[in-house]
Amino acid sequence: MTDQPILQVENLTIDYVVLDGIIKAVRNVSFTINEGEVVCLVGESGSGKTTVGLAISRALPENAIIREGRIIFKGRDLLNLEIRDKSTIEDKVMMIFQDPAATLNPLFKVGEIFSDVIKHHLKLSDQLKIREKALEFLKAVELPDPERIFNSYPHELSGGMLQRVIIAITLSVNPKLLIADEPTTMLDVTLQAQILDLLINLKKKFGLSILFITHNLSIAAEIGDRIIVMYGGEIVEEASSEELLKNPLHPYTKGLLECIPKTHIKYSKLKSIPGMIFDLRNPPLGCVFVDRCTEATDLCRKDKPRLIEFLKNHKVACHLYRGSTK
């Protein structure tokens, strides 16, 4: 792993225009992903994690507006690309989604979809070679009987198999950065473990960097090198996964960790974070977590804490950690 950032996101701010107002989905988000690194973006609904992913893969819906910020991928700003450059970049940043069935056109066989992608991206025209290439990738994602899968329609395959097929198609264009948005959420726990395992293996084999978006801190901790915790459109904490688990700083991160039921403890009462996320059309003036935080003070209400490197390689945005740098 080198420390060369493959992706830099700077001050990203994104709004959605909806019927009854403007949703301030992402505000001032900055982070980097190094080559070969797995970075997990963790947050609950309304945290803006998916919007960040969509912005990087430039797949934002029509009603999204990027107010500010830069997304620099291998030295080039993705937000200011000439049209002819777009396709070359698109090959290098790929995204996979939560619902694999919704990603594949049900009218075409897996093989037809796959062949189209390969033909377009690898500029191959020999049908036999295309097929060979497709089968090779289907094998790489550990699918049994790739021949049969090549000739199947999406509805004939299970959710876990479909997600593998999509990963195979995604890999065939040789991406450098893979954005995975909750790719295992719709799957059963046993299949979830399989897909996570596969992603890690493929990362090593193909030299991928991965931005893994999830609501599940446990999954993030297992597969991530680094974890970025988002709440209400802002980053509240960022650290390596070991550090974050050992020494969570932000009250939200602490709360989130306590919410995970541990199987070796018999609880009389589960820990939870009281309250709910604020209305995203009216973000609070001060800290985003202030309404649900037990340690909030007047300062938190008035003044937005900045994301600072409180400990070495451990950033947090919270007034509890101001000044007294260790």
Binding site: V17, V18, L19, I22, E62, N63
Partner: peptide
């Protein structure tokens, strides 16, 4: 909703 934004933009709705 997908077409709405175009209308909103064309109308110069404050964004």
């Amino acid at each position: 909703p997908r077409l709405r934004r175009t209308i909103l933009m064309r109308l110069g709705v404050k964004q």
